[in-house]
Design a protein around this nucleic acid. Structure first.
Length: 846
RNA sequence: GCCGAAGUGGCGGAAUGGCAGACGCGGCGGACUUAAAAUCCGCGGCCCGCAAGGGCGUCCGAGUUCGAAUCUCGGCUUCGGCACCA
């Protein structure tokens, strides 16, 4: 009978479900929301969409987050760690159309399966706080909050050119991707349509959203949001149309420019094809050309658009405008490189100092006039490309009374001059557009709005909420929103005049739900309001949020916006929802490609748990690399952490055992007696505790696991020796289990309690223990090995007492045979001691 | 084009001014076994050398420093985001 057979084998599939059930019984992970005696820690991870299956990517974000929750609890925090489901969304509707299953049934069945999967990873979610957004008890409050926004003017309905996907209907600007402008969900090319839709006024908050002070968010997210908001400063300048034979002139043509200093170089104007004045300004002789161009421009948005290297197109309107600074008459063109949605939809074109205008002017033979010159350039030096630099010593030229001024100074003076003349002013412009939240879909929150022929837009009174989604709707095998032909849903009486009226049939973008769901976790079933203000005041903002970076300008921007809107209607008091944000990386398939069913590289977590156990999967995901980095899934790598857990099992249960194969098994290291060995063990354990504590705090889980492996390896060297199983050993095992507990919760609780049982103690979960503290004495050493360098190259090393005098260290170093040989009689010009960590002898080469 | 992140063994990665390659995977050698698996021990940057040892080495090129993977400047490459935003 081998030594190994004396103890049970580590069988995760046997112990894991048992401990999961036990933790539920004990209620160990239930935050007492009313308890304010302990410091609170609101830990939030992005709730999943109930697609039906968790993939390994969900585990990659959720299991380290769970380790944070457990680690914080061990430090005495009252940790609130909820989970829920982002219930509304398109896949449910697609499944409904394809398989003729109601979206609600499909969604709830998937949620059931995902709950099981989430439990199988041993995560300590607070299930009684669960929020499912497609249930009326949640979306009712979407409607209620919408009414608040409507009353405050933060929600509005407007006719506007909107992004339209042929499959999915209207989209928010954030949901249109790429230069070719395709739909983020189905990939179809998106077109513009003029529609009346609902918007939330995110543009009100543009400046505030640019301010990240007080929150600790990753730089890439801040940069993406900042770019997306796209603040630029400059001036608005009013050009006036000049009289022509076909029109009297006198219309204001307002442009936005970031370069008012180049105003004297404006040699023509360009309007977006959709600009309101196009029709009025077009000369009779140009009508057919302009009409053809407008037609083509509209078609162009439907065909592939390759933006920057596309050749510029445009046609003149046959009308002119007056440049306010010099009274010059300049032609007005239309071109699709001017966008109707940005600025005023019209520009002053300064070909000398703008690349796009330069291209356009070159192509159509329009004049190019230099108005800025670098220090070494003459006033009229010809240009073979636009001069856009901001070099030192630049001056304005050909700019009337402003000529000769430094460019920066000229800019300020021109704005002042315009302001004095009443033809311009300083202005700020943003790229961001208001958030379009109308969706022509069934499976979402119905807008609580009724259209009455007499009273117009009438909100459904709060006491009549929720406006329920009808259960049984007929898709008739198509993607057309079934609500739009559901007479029972549509036909209502007006809440105001009681006359016949119609409900809004559009539903809200599901990002509305995810913009406040974390408030609802604190009181998921509250039925007299959306949130519990006292709990919200006590528990929010969220202390730590974890999730993917793909939501940088969608969910993560909307959540900030809605929090500010809720603040402004008096629902909450905070400015920001999430104090700290962490973006984990993405797990790729073993082939390094994005995981997808069609590639066949998807890793099923259920199967991994069956084979290796949840603890191994958790630990491997933490070990494979820095958490924010992600990377390809390694089918072999997981064996390494599984072996590590096996070794921990062996160390904890069988300290005296010996494995064949090691010639030195059972013997202490040559230089150590029993007392020295015990000191070594304690030193290893407490040094590990010091660094591992730091690594948990910094979410550096990969090195945390590596250091625990190192400790286990050290302990293995003492297995079977006289000190194994002794007090130092037991302390080290105890620390090892405590340090491993947040990451590998099942095996550690099992071993913890087997060891308790062996000494006659009653069961008590390791997860109710406190995080241990470092015994600084144990980590101290009396001697240290110091490398000796000559000219920066390590040539020897010596062991010296800690705290040795530099002069003594230097003397010892110079006395070494090896060093004398390398020095070859030379005397060091300089000696660096680096605080006793190293000696560097600097000698002249030669 | 603009913004952001990153380039280190066969592979994932460690070290953020002081011994490059911790820890793990894969590989090789050994112990145990009738054998295999499992387990345990050991060896693994490249080149020269039997070895001791030496030379080279963190994308490339300069620089700062006694000392640079780490800091500075210039360049290259990869990944992510934006993309005619006036």
């Amino acid at each position: 009978m081998t030594e190994r057979a004396r103890i049970d084998r580590y069988q995760p599939t046997e112990i894991e479900p048992r401990w999961q059930a036990r933790w539920d019984e004990l209620g160990l992970y239930h935050a007492d929301l009313a308890d304010s005696t302990r410091p609170k820690y609101y830990l939030l991870t992005m709730y999943p969409y109930p697609s039906g299956d968790l993939h390994i990517g969900h585990w990659y974000i959720k299991t380290p987050t769970d380790a944070i929750a457990r680690y914080r609890r061990m430090h005495g925090y009252n940790v609130f760690f909820p989970i829920g489901f982002d219930g509304f969304g398109l896949p449910a509707e697609n499944a409904a159309i394809k398989n003729n299953v109601p979206p609600a049934a499909w969604t709830m069945k998937n949620i059931e399966n995902m709950r099981r999967q989430l439990r199988s990873m041993g995560a300590t979610f607070q299930w009684d706080a669960e929020v499912v957004t497609c249930l009326p008890e949640f979306y009712r409050w979407n409607q209620w909050i919408f009414n608040q926004f409507l009353a405050a003017g933060l929600a509005y309905r407007a006719m506007a050119p909107v992004d339209w996907c042929p499959n999915d209907g209207t989209l928010a600007r954030e949901q249109v991707e790429g230069a070719d402008r395709h739909c983020w969900r189905c990939g179809a090319l998106v077109e513009k349509r003029d529609l009346e839709q609902w918007f939330l006024r995110i543009t009100n908050y543009a400046d505030e959203l640019l301010d990240f002070s007080g929150i600790d968010w990753p730089e890439p997210i801040r940069a993406q949001q900042t770019n997306w908001i796209g603040r630029s400063t400059g001036a608005e300048v009013v050009f006036r149309t000049a009289p022509d034979e076909h029109q009297a002139g006198g219309n204001d043509l307002v442009v936005f420019t970031t370069r008012p200093d180049t105003l004297f170089g404006a040699t023509f104007m360009v309007l977006a094809p959709e600009h309101a004045l196009v029709e009025r300004l077009t000369a009779p002789g140009q009508k057919s050309v302009v009409a053809a161009y407008l037609h083509q421009a509209r078609r162009q948005t439907e065909i592939e658009r390759l933006s920057t290297d596309r050749e510029k197109t445009g046609v003149p309107l046959g009308a002119h405008a007056i440049n306010p600074v010099n009274g010059e008459r300049i032609p007005i063109w239309i071109a699709d490189y001017v966008l109707s949605g940005y600025g005023t939809g019209a520009i002053m074109a300064v070909p000398a100092h703008d690349e796009r205008d330069f291209d356009f002017a070159t192509r159509f033979g329009l004049p190019i006039r230099r108005v800025v010159a670098a220090a070494d350039t003459t006033d009229d030096a010809p240009l073979d490309e636009a001069y856009v630099a901001h070099a030192k010593g630049e001056r304005l030229v050909n700019s009337g009374q402003f000529s000769g001024l430094p460019a920066a100074e000229g800019l300020a003076q021109i704005i002042d001059w315009l302001a004095a003349e009443g033809t311009g002013k300083r202005a700020v412009n943003y790229r961001i557009r208001d958030w379009l939240i109308s969706r022509q879909r069934y499976w979402g929150t119905p807008f609580p709005v009724v259209y009455c022929p007499i009273d117009g837009i009438v909100p459904v009174p709060d006491e009549d909420l929720p406006v329920l989604l009808p259960d049984n709707v007929d898709y008739a095998g198509s993607g057309v929103n079934p609500l739009s032909r559901d007479a029972a849903f549509l036909n209502v009486s007006c809440p105001s005049c009681d006359g016949p009226a119609q409900r809004e049939s559009d539903t809200m973008d599901t990002f509305v739900d995810s913009s406040w769901y974390w408030f609802r976790y604190l009181a998921p079933h509250k039925d007299d309001g959306p949130i519990d203000s006292a709990l919200v005041a006590q528990w929010t903002p969220v202390d730590q949020y974890t999730g993917g970076a793909e939501h940088a300008v969608m969910h993560l921007l909307y959540a900030r916006e809605i929090t500010k809107m809720m603040r402004d209607v008096g629902l909450v008091e905070q400015d920001e929802p999430f104090l700290r944000l962490f973006n984990q990386g993405q797990i790729l398939g073993a082939d390094g490609e994005r995981m997808s069913k069609s590639r066949g590289n998807v890793q099923d977590p259920d199967e991994l748990v069956q084979r290796h156990g949840a603890d191994s999967v958790r630990l491997f995901l933490m070990f494979m690399g820095p958490w924010d980095q992600g990377g390809p899934w390694s089918p072999e790598g997981i064996g390494g952490v599984h072996r590590f857990l096996n070794r921990v099992w062996t160390l904890a249960l069988d300290p005296q055992g010996r494995e064949g194969g090691d010639p030195d098994a059972g013997k202490l290291p040559a230089a150590e007696d029993a007392a020295a060995a015990e000191r070594s063990i304690r030193m290893a354990a407490h040094r590990t505790l010091r660094v591992v504590t730091d690594e948990y705090d910094g979410f550096r889980f990969n090195t945390m696991v590596a250091h625990l492996m190192e400790l286990a390896n050290s302990l293995f060297r003492y297995r079977g020796t006289e000190v194994a199983g002794g007090p130092a050993w037991d302390e080290a095992i105890r620390l090892l289990l405590l340090m491993l507990a947040p990451a590998a919760p099942h095996i550690t609780d099992e071993l913890w309690n087997r060891r308790r049982a062996a000494t006659g103690q009653p069961e008590s979960s390791i997860h109710a223990e406190s995080w241990p503290s470092v015994d600084v004495q144990a980590t101290a050493t009396e001697t240290r090995e110091v490398p000796i360098q000559v000219n920066g190259k390590v040539r020897d090393r010596i062991t010296v007492p800690v705290g040795i005098e530099p002069a003594e260290l230097e003397r010892l170093a110079l006395a070494r045979d090896r060093i004398r040989e390398v020095l070859g009689g030379r005397t060091p010009e300089r000696v660096i001691h680096a605080g006793g960590r190293l000696v560097n002898l600097v000698v002249r080469e030669g």
